[in-house]
Design a protein around this nucleic acid. Structure first.
Lengths: 235, 235
DNA sequence: ATAATGTAAATTGTTGACAATCTACAATTT
DNA sequence: AAATTGTAGATTGTCAACAATTTACATTAT
């Protein structure tokens, strides 16, 4: 070992078991392997992952804070079932956060950042030529994530991460993927252009009014017809 | 017992011990009883609160997610020490979130909501006549919280709650309370007026550009002079 | 003396066992 | 028969002991 390198260049994963368990469960929830409403038995999970119940418990707590799991005292945990109201909350929140991220990124623009954005945009354009919605969604999320990363705002990134996960879960559970690919691509082109040009006001406005209108209209219809159901008594 | 009442009117506190422990520690952190940088020994806390280490551990995890405590693997937890960069993140995030909350509240205005806002505003005006900054800050936070509650957006409220706590911690640790009481009151009057009149665009803009300029200038000065220090190597 | 090495104490990470609570179903009462 | 009560099983909440890792300090080598 050379003493000159104070820390190993690759910081090695100090991920404790509970974090790893949370990662596994998170993936399973977002993959749909654990469907919304599924009961999450601590004993069952601990046997399946070969971990103690305490460790599983800690993992579940993380997912509760991420909004992917809901807990009822002495009754256990289930995968969250997102309603149309939840979808409305998620999209309004995301657009607002993305408005800030777009403004900040536009305000501190550099050529290097512009390249990253352009690359992500080209990926989306490329993928959007085919009809693979899974791939389109991936490229879409990837571009959005890039914008947030470039904003250099730790809390904003964290917050978006949580919102994005829930949106992905909602999309997966409702098959609610918007229709017009051309419109989608066009909006993203305009957004990236505004950000790269450093125009903070337009960039923010573009992000805030981003897409989602199509989705939102659908959601609102569902909301009005489902407004009578009680969700808290369900369990 | 009468069978007609399906649930007890007062839902009784189902607060488990770890949640209660988190509440106690949160209060102590925000009170300043546990100063930023303080080491949080699990054994010490478990003896002081008469709880097991596992329960304390769960409480600490909550506070980590709230951003009040930071954890280093196998090295323990400390109360977070917020930097000027953190303050910048908190204020930009808060203003953005409050912009959304103001817009939503303005968009769904009712006389009953207007009364709540006016009441909170009058409290602030009343308190601002004296020089008690503790009381002013309390009324200030109270008014902001009212706006978020009226927005009827669960995730937005949750998010604000976390941001507010960290701002309170920052203010307490830096004694960074702005100066001009008159300006403060005037801004809040205008904001409430815009919200109550249902003017969504102005309400949002008022909230986004809210105050904090004075604070931000101070913070930026600190940022530039402290930009050389490394904070992650500290521990 | 300085730097490297090795051990002991302290602290965190993990586990398995015990207590409290809920759910389902049978027994009892009106 | 319907509603209430009581008991058994399952599940979650809490605790105390064990294992892994870090830190501090003494020892040794250069």
């Amino acid at each position: 070992m050379n003493a000159k390198e104070k820390r190993s260049p690759v910081p090695i994963i100090p991920r404790s078991l509970d974090v790893q368990a949370a990662d596994v469960l998170r993936d399973e929830i977002l993959d749909g392997a654990l469907a919304p409403g599924s009961r999450l038995l601590e004993i069952e999970l601990s046997e399946r992952l070969n971990l103690s119940r305490g460790t599983i418990r800690s993992a579940l707590q993380q997912l509760i804070y991420e909004g992917l799991v809901v807990q009822f005292p002495y009754r256990g945990c289930t995968v969250v079932g997102l309603t149309a109201q939840d979808a409305w909350e998620l999209y309004t929140l995301r657009n607002t956060l993305e408005g800030l991220a777009s403004r900040l990124t536009a305000a501190a623009m550099t050529p290097a950042k512009a390249i990253l954005l352009e690359t992500a945009l080209q990926d989306l354009i490329q993928v959007a030529q085919a009809d693979d919605w899974q791939a389109i969604a991936h490229a879409d999320f990837s571009l959005h994530k890039t914008i947030f990363q470039l904003s250099d705002h730790r809390r904003l990134q964290q917050q978006y991460q949580i919102v994005e996960q829930q949106i992905r879960l909602y999309i997966a559970s409702c098959n609610a993927l918007q229709a017009d690919r051309h419109e989608l691509v066009e909006q993203h082109i305009q957004l990236v252009k505004a950000i790269c040009s450093g125009d903070t006001a337009i960039a923010e406005e573009m992000a805030k009014s981003h897409n989602t209108e199509g989705q939102l209209l659908i959601q609102h219809l569902k909301t009005s017809e489902k407004s009578l159901e009680k969700s808290s008594e369900k369990f």
